[in-house]
Design a protein around this nucleic acid. Structure first.
Length: 433
DNA sequence: TCTGGGGTCCTAGGACCC
DNA sequence: TCTGGGGTCCTAGGACCC
C-alpha cells in the first residue's frame, strides 16, 4: 500500500505557525510580484477567495473581512517543508519516503499490517502536526494515483475523515472512483478532461474501465496506460526515494512593471543567471546549455480572457559544461539580446513583462575533483564561486554580486507583504516578550 | 519499375504536476 | 491598471550513422 501525505494550505499553515493569532482566521499567500493567490485557508475559501485568482480581484473581499495577507516567503516555506519531511523520514525510515514537492510526500506502507493502516495513517498525521505545527492530510490506497484520490476525499470533508482516508478494499476504491470527477485525477488536466468528456467519460470509475489500448491512443501513450492501470489498483508508478539531481534549472520572473530598455532586460537576465548558477552549484552540477526567453506584454482586447503571452527564446550550447557564473552570464546576455530583437520584430511591441533563464544539459561538475584537462584558472573560478556562495549565504543574499546584474534594478518585482524569515535568519527570529 | 533495416541523438512542443 | 514560478515526462520528426 502507498500513502500520500499532503500539507493543508501549506504556505498559509507555515505562516500561521509563527502567528498563532491567525489560527482559525482567514489567511492568503500571494505569488511573486503579489500577482495572484497561491495558497488560502478554508476560512478564506469560504469567503469566496478564488485559488490562483488575481489578487486585485479578491482585494475588496480580503480588505472587507480583514484577511491576513502575505507575500510569498520561500525561505520560510523551504525550511518548514524540510521539518515535515524529516519527521516523515523519522517515522517511516528514509527509504520509504519520496519527497514529491514542497508540501507533499509519498510513503511506502508495505510493511504495515492491513488492519493497522488506519491507525498508522492517523499517527503520522498527528505526529507531523505536533512536531512541526503543520496540519496534513493522509490518503492511503494500493497505488500512488489512488492514494491521491483518497487524499482528495480526506481533504474535502475534514470533519468526517479527520484528514485521513484509507481505501484498502476494492469496494471502497470503486466507491471513491465513482465520486471523483476526471478533472480531479492526478494526471488529468484541462485538455484531457475535455477530451474525456467528448467520449462520455465523466468520473474516475468510468475511466478505470476503459481498455489500455484506448488510453495509449488518447491520453499520451504510455502515460495513459499507466494512468488506467493505476486506477485499477495495479501499481505502475514506483516510489522514487533518492534525491535526484535536477535536469533543468530555471529562474524566471515577472517584472515589477513592464520594461522596454534592453539594458534593464540584460540586468534582469544576468541576475537570474546568477541565481540559476547558485542552484546549479548546490547540486554540484555544471550546465552545457543555456536558454533565455522574454515575454512581450500584449494588448488585451476587451472581453478577452487572461492568457500567458507567447515567449520568444534563444538557446546556445556551450563548448563545455560550467557552473561558473561569469561563464554563464556572457552567453546569457548574448541570448538576451537575440531574443529581445527577435521578439520586437515578431510582435511589434517593445514592452516586456517577463524574462527567464534556463540551464540544461546538466552533468556532474568535474572541476570539483580537479580536472587535469581544464587549465588551473578554471579551478580558481570554481573556488571563487564557492567563496561567493558562502559569503552570500552567511551574510545576506546578494551582498556579493556581478556588476552586470545592475544596481538600480528598475525591473525588480514587488513584494510588499512578506513575513520575516523566522527560521533561517538570526535577525528575523520570532521575539517573545 | 524496382531503392533496407535498425539504431541514436537532438529539438520542439504538448501535456501534466504542485 | 493589476493574473507565479519551477519542474517532469513523453512523442514526433529530422539528421545522421552503419
Amino acid at each position: 500500500m502507498k500513502a500520500v501525505v499532503d500539507c493543508n494550505s501549506f504556505y498559509c499553515s507555515a505562516e500561521r505557525v509563527f502567528r498563532p493569532d491567525l489560527q482559525h482566521k482567514p489567511v492568503v499567500v500571494l505569488s511573486n510580484n503579489d500577482g495572484c493567490i497561491i495558497s488560502r485557508t478554508d476560512e478564506a475559501k469560504e469567503l469566496g477567495v478564488e485559488m490562483a485568482g488575481p489578487y486585485f480581484k479578491a482585494k475588496p473581499v480580503i480588505e472587507q473581512h480583514g484577511v491576513a495577507t502575505f507575500s510569498s516567503n520561500y525561505n520560510l516555506y523551504g525550511d518548514m517543508s524540510w521539518r515535515v519531511m524529516e519527521t516523515l523520514r523519522y517515522i517511516m525510515g528514509k527509504e520509504n519516503v519520496e519527497v514529491y514537492s514542497v508540501d507533499e510526500a509519498f510513503l511506502n506502507l508495505d510493511e504495515v499490517a492491513f488492519d493497522k493502516l488506519q491507525e498508522v495513517a492517523m499517527m503520522i498525521r498527528k505526529t507531523v502536526e505536533q512536531w512541526t505545527g503543520v496540519a496534513v492530510s493522509v490518503g492511503v490506497a494500493p497505488t500512488k494515483t489512488l492514494s491521491k484520490v483518497a487524499n482528495h476525499i480526506a481533504k474535502k470533508d475534514k470533519q468526517a475523515t479527520q484528514c485521513v482516508t484509507v481505501l484498502e478494499t476494492a469496494e471502497k476504491v470503486n466507491e471513491a472512483l465513482c465520486r471523483t470527477p476526471v478533472k480531479e485525477i492526478w494526471g488529468v488536466g484541462g485538455q484531457y478532461a475535455e477530451k474525456l468528456k467528448a467520449f462520455g467519460i465523466y468520473d474516475a470509475y468510468q475511466l478505470s474501465r476503459m481498455p489500455e489500448e484506448w488510453g495509449r491512443k488518447n491520453l499520451g501513450g504510455v502515460v495513459g496506460i499507466r494512468l488506467i492501470k493505476e486506477l485499477r489498483g495495479e501499481p505502475s508508478i514506483g516510489l522514487d526515494e533518492e534525491l535526484t539531481e535536477k535536469k533543468m534549472i530555471a529562474t524566471t520572473r515577472m517584472f515589477g512593471s513592464p520594461v522596454s530598455e534592453l539594458r534593464d532586460i540584460k540586468e534582469a537576465v544576468a541576475t537570474y543567471t546568477s541565481r540559476a548558477a547558485e542552484k546549479l552549484r548546490r547540486q554540484y552540477g555544471a550546465a552545457s546549455m543555456i536558454s533565455v526567453f522574454v515575454v512581450p506584454k500584449e494588448e488585451r482586447k476587451p472581453g478577452q480572457s487572461f492568457r500567458h503571452g507567447p515567449s520568444v527564446s534563444s538557446a546556445i550550447t556551450l563548448p563545455h559544461a560550467t557552473c561558473v557564473t561569469s561563464e554563464l552570464i556572457k552567453p546569457a546576455l548574448q541570448m538576451a539580446e537575440k531574443a529581445y530583437h527577435k521578439s520586437i520584430s515578431e510582435h511589434k511591441t517593445q514592452l516586456f513583462k517577463k524574462a527567464g533563464v534556463m540551464l540544461s544539459g546538466i552533468v556532474p561538475d568535474t572541476t570539483l575533483q580537479g580536472n587535469l584537462f581544464i587549465p588551473a584558472s578554471g579551478n580558481n573560478a570554481r573556488m571563487l564561486m564557492d567563496a561567493m556562495d558562502n559569503i552570500n549565504f552567511s551574510m545576506r543574499n546578494d551582498i556579493l554580486k556581478f556588476a552586470s546584474t545592475g544596481m538600480e534594478r528598475n525591473w525588480k518585482m514587488r513584494q510588499e507583504l512578506r513575513s520575516p524569515r523566522y527560521t533561517s535568519r538570526w535577525d528575523e527570529l520570532r521575539e517573545v516578550k
